[in-house]
Each structure stands twice: as C-alpha cells, then as structure tokens.
Computed example of a mutant assay.
Amino acid sequence: MTDRTRSTGQPLLSIRNLRKSYGDNEVLRGVSLDLHRGETVAILGASGSGKSTMLRCVNYLERPDGGSITLGGELLGCELSSRGLRMLGEGKISRQRQKTGMVFQSFNLFPHWTVLRNVIDAPIHVRGLDKGKARELGLRLLSRVGLEDRADSYPKHLSGGQQQRVSIARALAMEPELLLFDEPTSALDPANVGEVTSVMKQLADEGSTMMVVTHEVGFARAAASRVVVVANGSIVEDGHTEQVLQAPRSPITESFLENTLHR
C-alpha cells in the first residue's frame, strides 16, 4: 500500500452537503468530502449506494439538486450573481469539466479512429494543441500505459484491458487536475483487471489526484491513501486505507468487506 498521507492546506476538491434525487429516490443525502492534491481515494460501497452518482456529480454529468462542489477554488456548475447563485450554461460547465478526466466502465472509444487519434483528438480540438505536439503527447502517454506499439491499431483489435488503458491515456491527454474512475475494471475479464489496476497504481504512486469508484478491494489496499465507504446515499466511513480495511469502525463497512472478500 502506498505510504502517501493526506496533504494539509486547501483541498483540491471540496464537496459540501451534496444531494441528488431521481423522483422519490434520494440517491445522495448530504454528502461532504474533501480531496487533497496527490491523494488517491477509493470509493467503496454496495451497488446502488450512490457512489457512482457522486462521481458523476463532480464533473456535472449529473446536476446536483443541492449542495456545492468546488475544484481548485472554483465553484462548479453555478456562479454568484446579484440575485444569488445561478446555474451555469452547458458551455461554461463544459469548460469546467476539462479540469477533470473521467474513465468509465465502458471504454467509449471511437471504433473508426486509431488508438492515437482517440487519445489526441480532444487536445487538438478542445485545448487547441498543435497536431505535431499532440502526436508527441499521445505517443508519450501510450508509452506510459504500455501501449506505444498499438498507436495505429483500432479499438476492435485490442483486448478490453488494452482499450481501458487507452481510455486512461485519453483522460491524461487533457492534463486534468483530477482523475475520476467509475468502476474501471467491472467490464473486464479477470485476466485483464491486473493490467489496468497496475497502470492506476503507477499513477497513484506518481502523485496523481484520483477518485476511484471500485469494487476492487485489492486495488484500494495497494494504491489508495484513503478509503471512503458509501451506503444509502451517505458516507459511513472515511479514513486511512489500512484502518478502514483492517479495523473498520462501521458495521456497514465490516459487512461490505466480508461479503466482497468472500464472494
């Protein structure tokens, strides 16, 4: 397990009293969480607990119903006006979203584009990066995830683990302040899980700031500096990885870990 500990000072990400409902189903019930630069936080919890919804609210793929999210000192999704808080339009939210890199369960690669083009299209068209520099960046990132020899391949010729590593490279290409992973190994065959979690552990060891919704307790133990456990839309435990996994304070955490480890 990494020996990195929580940084002091101003958090990079600050979530306060976050609420989200779908009809009568209250999915997030006043969640508050801070994340400092260089931390890797593993978000654990049973299916339907609200952990993925929390992640999607951070980059405004879902609009929260209440509370606030601040990233790098900037309030996300809304701004102060003379009449109080007002929601931002999609254009401004899209600009803010560039501060985060999201890796999903499904790989979401364009099948008719090469691996390299999948990685560098956004830096060229969103960041305005010169094509030559974008290519250099893309090849460097593919090397970082162990796929430098597959730059000219198409996604259909890659394994699931390789495609997910391309997705990680694509997220890194936007040079985000915060990386978000939503169950990045759940769609993979067991044989491919290790190659993806190995890349993620490398990123954690290099000091990337990451929120990882995962069912892989092994990854949390190996790479996360903190573990947060979510149940019924609330955080029931938040602490150093070793403490949460070895001596959980919440009976909900204890039950979840027992069920997960003996599945």
Rank of each mutant, 00 (worst) to 15 (best):
P190M: 11
M210L: 14
A222W: 00
M200N: 07
Q202G: 13
Q202L: 13
V217W: 01
V199Q: 09
T241V: 03
T197M: 15
M210R: 03
P190K: 09
A231Y: 13
E216N: 13
L188R: 01
D205M: 15
M200I: 15
G233L: 11
N232K: 13
V213E: 05
D238M: 12
A204K: 06
G194R: 11
L203R: 07
V196S: 03
A187P: 06
A224V: 02
S198K: 14
M211S: 02
L188W: 02
A224G: 07
V213D: 03
V199P: 04
T209C: 09
E195I: 13
A231R: 09
F219K: 06
A220Q: 11
T209A: 12
T214K: 05
V236G: 10
F219S: 06
G239P: 01
D189C: 04
D205C: 11
V213A: 06
V196T: 03
S198F: 00
P190V: 09
M210Q: 13
T214L: 03
A220H: 12
A187R: 05
H215R: 04
V236M: 09
V212P: 14
E242W: 00
V217G: 01
V230H: 09
V230N: 01
A191T: 14
E237D: 12
H240A: 15
V227K: 11
V212W: 09
T214W: 05
G239S: 14
R221K: 14
M210E: 05
E206A: 13
T197H: 00
A220Y: 11
L203N: 08
V228Q: 09
G194P: 00
R221S: 12
L188I: 07
V217R: 06
V228D: 02
M200W: 09
S234K: 11
T197P: 00
T197I: 13
S186Y: 05
E216P: 14
H215D: 07
T241F: 12
V229F: 14
F219A: 08
M200G: 02
V196H: 01
L188H: 05
M200E: 08
V199I: 13
A223R: 07
D189Y: 09
L188Y: 01
S198Q: 14
A231C: 12
G239E: 13
S225H: 02
D189E: 08
D238N: 15
Q202P: 00
V196K: 01
T197F: 00
E237P: 02
L188V: 08
G233W: 08
H215F: 10
T214V: 05
A224N: 07
V212H: 10
R221M: 03
M211N: 05
V213M: 10
A223P: 06
I235D: 07
V228Y: 11
A187H: 04
A223E: 02
V227H: 07
E216I: 02
A204E: 11
A222G: 03
I235E: 10
D189H: 07
E237L: 12
G207R: 09
S208C: 15
K201V: 00
E206Y: 10
D189R: 06
S198T: 15
G239C: 08
A204R: 02
R226M: 10
S186Q: 01
S186I: 10
T214H: 06
A204D: 04
E195T: 15
D238F: 12
G207V: 08
A191E: 15
F219Q: 10
G207T: 06
